[in-house]
């Protein structure tokens, strides 16, 4: 029964990793940009949630309603003011600029909040759990986060494949010049994509803030988890990303059970194994 609990915990945190990954994959799909500052933006969202709950005294989970629009606005401005200027055929500018951004965000947060570990309290829900079956307990908060993660990914799928909005994203991702002939302003489309990505990041950031201790330096690890989930799942499929996140989460949980120091290593090794054996990922998009 112990192992069943471990696997379940791994699955549940996998939802969170899938959210990290979804924002990353979205951006890469639409504008071929990998945002190295992705993880640090998640941490930024956590700190914005911290400021929101401190000043307004609300439950952090409700704070999502405030943090998400703020992050979306930040994403829109960031893309239009800075990142749109890096896009093009050359690989270096977007990579180096987002790397610089990562360093800036980390150190700005360090200056503003110090390196102290923080955590947000969501109240009694944090310790609540219920039995799924004899001997198998599920934490309410992790389950809630998993359900929300699945809902977010489902909403993204719906958005991309059933709405005019999503159609515009996909068309721009297919062909940036011809999409302009449809009346789409690339600068605006990219900025909207980044805003969407950051809104997803906001949810992930709040969840992290409630679930674990956070400090300005934990960003890069989140970027790596998101990236690993994308690669394991396979580029081009949101549900594949969810599967990738779950596999990563379960690997980490199993590793931690064998030896607490092996948690992260187990996840990395799972990623490297997939990269070695099936580099296109487990559920890659099949091109017609």
């Amino acid at each position: 029964m112990e192992w069943a609990n471990i696997v379940i915990q791994g699955v549940l945190i996998g939802g969170l990793y899938a959210m990290f990954a979804a924002g990353l994959a979205l951006i890469f799909g639409v504008m071929r940009l990998v945002n190295i500052a992705h993880g640090d933006l998640i941490v930024l969202a956590a700190y914005i949630a911290l400021m929101t709950t401190d000043t307004l005294g609300m439950n952090p989970l409700l704070a999502i309603l405030i943090v998400a629009p703020i992050m979306a606005a930040i994403g829109y401005c960031l893309q239009r003011a800075l990142l749109n200027r890096t896009l093009g055929n050359d690989l270096l500018p977007p990579l180096l600029v987002t790397f610089g951004l990562s360093v800036i965000i980390q150190n700005a947060l360090l200056e503003l909040f110090t390196a102290d570990s923080r955590r947000l309290s969501a109240g009694a829900i944090e310790v609540a759990s219920f039995p799924l079956a004899p001997g198998i307990w599920i934490g309410v908060l992790p389950l809630l986060q998993f359900v929300v993660a699945v809902a977010v990914i489902g909403a993204l799928q719906l958005l991309f494949y059933r709405t005019a909005f999503g159609r515009a994203f996909r068309a721009t991702a297919d062909d940036q010049s011809v999409s302009q002939l449809m009346g789409l302003d690339n600068r605006h489309v990219f900025a909207l994509a980044m805003a969407l990505s950051l809104a997803v990041i906001a949810v992930a950031g709040v969840f992290i803030a409630v679930r674990t201790n956070f400090d300005p330096a934990i960003g890069p690890a989140r970027l790596i988890f998101g990236f690993e989930a994308v690669i394991i799942g396979g580029l081009g499929s949101m549900w594949g990303t969810l599967a990738g996140g779950i596999i990563l989460g379960v690997s980490q949980a199993i590793g931690a059970q064998i030896n607490p120091g092996w948690q992260l290593l187990a996840g990395h090794l799972a990623f490297l194994l997939i990269l070695a054996l099936r580099p296109e990922g487990l559920f890659p998009k099949v091109k017609g």
């Binding site: 890469f28 790596i224 992260l264 580099p279």
Partner: peptide, 20 residues
Amino acid sequence: RLRGHYFAIGTWVVAEVFRL
């Protein structure tokens, strides 16, 4: 096996594996 940006992050993962 990784291209461009993904190669970059992949190298970071390798560094993390070495560190851990």
